[in-house]
Design a protein around this nucleic acid. Structure first.
Lengths: 228, 228
DNA sequence: CGGAATCTTGAGCGGCTTCAAAACCTGTGG
DNA sequence: CCACAGGTTTTGAAGCCGCTCAAGATTCCG
C-alpha cells in the first residue's frame, strides 16, 4: 500500500492547538517536541493506558478507536494532519487515554512528554485553553453522533459519515472527491454493519452518485446521497 | 412536587472545578458568582445559544438534554449538586452550548459571566485545567455510552443506567437506594423506549430487585440487575 | 371526583443484523 | 506471466430485538 499521494503537511496556523499563538511561541513548542515516524497499521497509543504523552499528527492518517467488550473494534474517528490526541496528558492527575490510535498510512507525529507540555502550557495559558476548546468540540461531535444513532436511519448516517470523512480526509481529483477508506471503517463510523454499508454504497453507485473501488470511495455528487 | 428531601448542598471541596484550589481562591471565585434560584422544570440554558455564562449547580437536579431533528428530546445526563455546565464560556472565541439544561426540582445555581470567569481563570490556571479534565471526562462518558449502545442489549444498558444514576443522584434509605426519576427519563438515558424500560423495570420488581413507584425507583439489590 | 400525567401490557411488525457463500481485487512468488 | 492466497466486497435469505401503536390501569392533585 504505497501512496504517491502527498500526505499534506499542514501549515502551523491550521493546528487548532496553536490557535492564537505567535510564530515564536509555536516554533518554541514545536522545537520541544520529538518527531517520530510510524509505519502503516501500527499502534501509537492504547486506550486506558496512562496519558503520558501528547501527540500532534503531521502527516498520514490515524484511526482512533475503542474495542467493545465483545471484542468488536469501534471507530471513534479518523485523525488527519493537524489533529492532536492524548489531551489527557495536559491535566495534573494521571488520566487515561480514551481510545486507541493506530496508523492507517505511514505517519509522522510530534510527541511531547507530559511534564514538558505541561510546563509549556503553564508558560502559555492559551495552550490549555485551546485544549479545552478541542475537548469540547469532541463532546459536541460525540453527542451529534449519538443523536444520529438514535434518530436517523442507517442510510442517513452513512451519507453523513461519508460527507464528513470526505471533507476532512478526502483529496480532490478531477473526477470528484476521493477518500481512502474501507467499507469496514466507513461502516463502523456510521454505526452500521459492513453488509448494510455495502448495500447502500452499491445503490449509490448505481445512481451515479459515487464510484467504489477496493479501499476507496470516489464521491461524485454529494447531493445525491442525501435525497433518497 | 414538593420535596421535603434535602437537596444536599455540596461541600466546596467536592466541586471538580475547584480541585486543588486553596480555600481562599475558592472563596474568591464563589464570591464573584451570582446566586440564582430556579423553579422546577425551568430552562436555564438552551442548546446552540452562545456560551455566555458558566453555571455551578448548588442544590437540586437538572436535566441536560438535546432535541433530535424529529423533535424527540434526548437526555444526555442528569446534573447534580457540584456539577458545572456551560464550560464553553471559558474559551476565547464564542462557542455554543452543547445541550439544554432544564431544572427537574427547584434548584440553586451560581452563575459567572464569561468575562468574569475568564479573568479568574487567567489568575488561576488550575481553573482552566480542571475545566479540561471535566470536558475530557464527558468525552469518556459519551464514548462509553456509545459503545454500550452498539454492543449491549437494552436490558444491560438500562441496568447500567440505573446503577449509575443511583450512585450519582440517589439518596440512601433504610429500604435501599432511592432515585427520583421517571421511566421516560430513565429510558432516554439508556437509549431505549419507555415501553421497553417499563417491561424490564417491572420484571426486576417481580424478582425483588427493586420497587417502582410513580417518578421513583427504589433499588434494593443492585447485583440482581446485572445477572439475567 | 375529574382530568392529566405516568405507567403497564399485549400484539404486530420492520429495519438491520446475522449467517453463508460466492465473487472480486491485488500483490506475490514461482 | 500466470496462479494462488489473502483480504475485501457483494448478494441473498432468514431471523430477531426492540419499536410502534393501541388501549387500559394506576396514581396524583386540584
Amino acid at each position: 500500500m504505497q501512496h504517491p499521494v502527498s500526505h499534506s503537511r499542514h501549515s502551523k496556523q491550521s493546528v487548532a492547538l496553536f490557535k492564537g499563538l505567535t510564530e515564536e511561541q509555536i516554533s518554541a513548542i514545536v522545537a520541544a517536541g520529538h518527531p517520530r515516524r510510524y509505519t502503516p497499521t501500527t499502534p501509537i497509543i492504547r486506550s486506558d493506558e496512562p496519558a503520558l504523552h501528547l501527540y500532534l499528527l503531521q502527516t498520514g492518517h490515524v484511526n482512533f478507536s475503542r474495542v467493545a467488550e465483545d471484542g468488536r473494534q469501534i471507530l471513534l474517528g479518523r485523525l488527519v494532519p493537524a489533529d492532536v490526541f492524548g489531551l489527557g496528558s495536559l491535566v495534573a492527575d494521571t488520566v487515561r487515554y480514551i481510545g486507541t490510535a493506530d496508523t492507517v498510512t505511514e505517519s509522522e507525529v510530534l510527541i511531547w512528554e507530559r511534564n514538558c507540555i505541561r510546563r509549556l502550557a503553564t508558560a502559555c495559558p492559551l495552550l490549555a485553553e485551546n485544549a479545552l476548546r478541542i475537548a469540547l468540540h469532541y463532546v459536541g461531535v460525540f453527542v451529534k453522533r449519538h443523536i444520529a444513532l438514535v434518530s436517523d436511519t442507517a442510510e442517513e448516517r452513512l451519507a453523513y459519515t461519508l460527507i464528513q470523512i470526505g471533507s476532512r480526509a478526502g483529496h480532490m481529483l478531477p473526477a470528484g472527491l476521493e477518500v481512502d477508506i474501507k467499507n469496514e471503517d466507513l461502516a463502523s463510523l456510521a454505526d452500521i454493519s459492513v453488509f448494510t454499508a455495502s448495500r447502500f454504497l452499491k445503490s449509490w453507485e448505481r445512481e451515479g452518485a459515487l464510484e467504489k473501488h477496493r479501499g476507496k470511495v470516489l464521491i461524485r455528487c454529494p447531493e445525491k446521497l442525501l435525497v433518497a
